[in-house]
Design a binder for these strands. Structure first.
Lengths: 332, 332
DNA sequence: GACACGATTTACAACGTTGTGAACGGCATC
DNA sequence: GATGCCGTTCACAACGTTGTAAATCGTGTC
């Protein structure tokens, strides 16, 4: 069906290897020969067979991005940026969804599908500290987030603790004293939830305010729905609060919706701060104050780190920190 | 590095072809031999080389999904569903972003990267009627949306006209008479914008109401920001309106934000209806009435149609309609 | 015990590419 | 005119798999 090097060679009257040399910009090709080959390529619409090239070269020109779910705006925007960063380097991105499921994450790491790509960007959510050993796979990999630590695996680190501390401190500085937290995962310590909660605790301690666990709104999943539910339960519980720190924007928007529906004024009665700076917080009603974790930089750094790792497997471990900022809007 | 059929064969004491037969569940393998081979596979952690398999078989086990931008919630959720539908069929999804750019869409169709996949799901936005001929590519392809018609290309069709007519009729039935439209692309006829606007016109005509073009809020891009701007301009223009039909949810949320910020009550003063039923409309303040175009069904049908086309290139053209519904919420 | 006939296993040739090294050609040098 | 050199071209052998067809094995039949 499709033309091969041999077809082009026949048409141009050269050996197929010369065509290969032209395609790969091998220097020692006579200009006239090169032109004849290029003409033949154009005439036949030749395009190299990537499977054959991969087989021969061991490179695929593709990387995988494994995220919990694309429908969560944070990951959609992250994927968007990763695809752009990869494209700048001539790489194509294949997306895997793990649905926050530990088993799916574990299976992914040994999946035969990974043999289709040169490297993996992995944003784990479900794996636990005990699974850390499973991260020692043969494929170049860069972890995204602060979820799992492994001494020998590359990592682009979101500053979960530091940023959460800043968000909490910001609310304290504006006079809020009863700050509820939405999205808590009880007992969890090393995940985004655990780390952000730690930042919250640290800020309160700094300010000499005792942590009141009645202000914790647990939410296993971080969708709008769970945010709304958590806020409702906080209100029903009768505990007083003048601010909500939601552990991501999606939760924040759900919580804000529930608060306003229940007649609380945002930010007058309750200030709301989110985390992620996704697009949807910018035009919510009111617009959402949030932490910008530097998503574009995360994507760019992660792809860059992965490309380095693919090029040199013996590189020292890369732990890349990422800049962040607090985005102040109307909800606080 | 990685084990091959030959390595396994050596360990199991059989020819490499027998190993291949075991891997491919070829029936005539003695149970004892099979077991010996399976043990060797397990011991070496053998996984087939997918490039070699592709080269030999001509199949890649991957499809591409080309969308304008993943950061638009509609496409993120679509991609999510497509990945799930593909996974059910053992296919992996590679995502291309065209950024709504005509040139990028055109380039994509002849891109060498497409040789990495068995088929393409393509949601074109920038291509014009003149580019339609470019859709005749050698690769199995299914178009998503109602944007481009081509007599010989498979198509999963969103019912743009019909649904927009229903949305408008719904507003008319609730007594609204001055319905603004946000997201209009002036002069455009065959795109989502043009078709949805046509549905709007038809509903007004049915009701015997003249179309007032002062109620059109143009917006080339369909982000929240443009929705907000369009609403602001409508308000500044002084034209009266008691409803907004936004051509997608993202625009609707932006418009709603602008309306509320300007002191208009939604839905009392202005009813707002969107299009797409993305997750973010569900917990906006107020929650957004919208058209559900059947995204999950679109994804499922599209992948199914693509798989059929890959299996049989001589199949008659597939034009698959998709069911839809109107989701009533607090904004109207 | 030879023969036939499945069941099982194997050898070999692709698939289309790139890397290696050898062959070829022309030109300058002596 | 032979020698050497460099620029150019080519032959061949991988890469790891699957399809085809042939070889081998085992069992039942006469």
């Amino acid at each position: 069906m499709a033309a091969t090097l041999h077809d082009v060679a026949r048409l141009a009257g050269v050996s197929f290897k010369t065509v290969s040399n032209v395609v790969n910009d091998y220097p020692h090709v006579r200009p006239s020969t090169r032109q004849r080959v290029l003409d033949a390529i154009a005439q036949l619409g030749y395009q190299p067979n990537l499977s054959a090239r991969s087989l021969r070269s061991g490179r695929n020109g593709a990387i995988s991005l494994a995220v919990p779910e694309l429908r969560l705006p944070y990951f959609a925007e992250l994927a968007d940026e990763v695809i752009r960063a990869a494209e700048r380097r001539g790489l194509v991105v294949l997306i895997e969804q793990t649905n926050r499921d530990r088993q799916r994450e574990v299976d992914l790491l040994t999946s035969a599908r990974l043999r289709m790509v040169d490297g993996l960007l992995f944003s784990p959510l479900g794996m636990t500290a005990e699974d850390v050993g499973l991260l020692e796979i043969d494929l170049p990999m860069v972890l995204l987030g602060e979820r799992l630590f492994h001494p020998t695996v590359d990592h682009v680190m979101i500053q979960n603790v530091e940023t959460a501390r800043a968000a909490t401190r910001y609310l304290l500085e504006r006079g809020r004293r009863r700050i509820a937290v939405v999205g808590v995962h009880p007992g969890e310590v090393i995940g985004s939830a655990g780390l952000r909660l730690r930042g919250y605790r640290e800020a309160l301690e700094e300010a000499g305010i005792a942590v009141d666990e009645r202000l914790f709104g647990p939410a296993e999943l971080w969708y709008r729905h769970q945010g709304a539910e958590a806020a409702q339960q906080l209100m029903q519980s009768g505990v007083e609060f003048d601010a909500v720190f939601a552990l991501n924007d999606t939760l924040a928007l759900g919580a804000m919706h529930a608060l306003i529906t229940a007649g609380r004024k945002v930010p007058e009665d309750v200030a709301v701060v989110g985390f992620d700076n996704t697009d949807d917080g910018q035009y919510s009603q009111p617009a959402l104050t949030t932490i910008d974790p530097g998503r574009r930089e995360i994507a760019e750094s992660a792809v860059a780190a992965l490309v380095r790792r693919i090029a040199d497997r013996d590189l020292p471990v890369q732990h890349v920190p990422v800049g962040w900022s607090l985005v102040e809007r109307a909800s606080s």
